[in-house]
């Protein structure tokens, strides 16, 4: 006997997945209604051999990897900074988490129009003050710019998790290392970093799940362009199904994305298994 809740949950998950799977094997273009027919693996062949796919795959990995690097390394450094006793500690910590509460679309638009805009943006203004040429961030460096925007959103999360981990470090361990002759660098790399490994694993795990499906930030800033320079897999799926009206190929892309996400998840679970059960 399955409880109604479980059945509901199953339907909730299985129905969209099953329908996507079904559509992915159909020739199904919104511009040609009535021509739907079973199409074998043609949609998959089309999606996977599209040069845009490999580029999008590369962009997805760069986006996830780049944001993870910035947030974990930057978060560790910021956590060390915030752990120092200072004036107005409570307020600083509270302000610090603010970016996390800003909607992704809003924060991306703020970055696009107020910071990175080559004529009105703050960065352009600073460049002009120092006599430099303003850079068209989103035009010339679309992917790094998006990585920067997303990293800004996730940095507080990483910092807070790492800060709590840092505060749980037994101060006697640091003192013991001090007496054992370890200098500040050795103490950081031999004692603090291993202690933070678990928390960093949790940060990586949670962030990866969200970063694999980044969409809104790309939509409102670069629209995947120029060309496909800032298109990731979710954006490619969107472009196929809703810009080119090809639901069949879009669905095939969706299934590919699910498979990729599962591959990443398996890798992550192994890492978690190694790190979480010390």
């Amino acid at each position: 006997m399955m409880s109604p809740a479980v059945i509901l949950l199953l339907l909730w998950m299985i129905v969209p997945l099953a329908m996507t799977l079904y559509f992915s094997f159909l020739r199904y273009n919104l511009l040609m209604p009535g021509t739907e027919a079973f199409d074998g693996i043609q949609n998959y062949r089309y999606f996977l051999t599209d040069p845009a796919f490999l580029e999008a795959l590369g962009n997805t990995l760069m986006l996830v990897g780049g944001v993870l690097c910035i947030t974990v390394i930057g978060g560790t450094l910021l956590a060390l900074l915030l752990d120092q006793p200072m004036f107005g500690q409570g307020i600083v910590r509270l302000l610090f988490i603010a970016p996390f509460f800003v909607m992704p679309t809003v924060s991306a638009l703020v970055w696009k129009n107020m910071f990175m805009n080559p004529t009105n943006g703050l960065f352009a203004f600073v460049a002009k003050v120092f006599g430099g040429t303003p850079i068209d961030w989103l035009g010339h460096y679309p992917l790094p710019s998006i990585i920067l925007i997303v990293a800004w959103q996730w940095l507080p999360f990483a910092t807070l998790i790492l800060l709590t981990a840092l505060q749980s470090l037994d101060s006697e361990q640091i003192e013991a290392a001090e007496m054992d002759g370890a200098n500040a660098f050795s103490r950081f790399f031999h004692i603090v970093v291993p202690h933070l490994a678990r928390a960093a694993t949790v940060v990586i795990l949670i962030q990866t799940i969200f970063l694999l499906s980044i969409f809104a930030e790309i939509l409102v800033t670069t629209n995947g362009g120029p060309g496909n320079a800032s298109t990731n897999i979710p954006f490619l799926v969107y472009a196929q199904s809703l810009l080119q009206f090809d639901v069949g190929v879009g669905s095939a892309g969706g299934i590919v994305a699910v498979v990729l996400a599962n591959i990443v998840a398996i890798f992550l679970m192994r890492m978690v298994g190694k790190n979480l059960d010390l």
């Binding site: 037994d170 006697e172 361990q173 003192e175 013991a176 290392a177 031999h190 004692i191 291993p194 202690h195």
Partner: peptide
């Protein structure tokens, strides 16, 4: 130390 302060990892 009282807590031994061994390095757990």
């Amino acid at each position: 130390f009282q807590s031994y302060a061994l390095y757990p990892h």
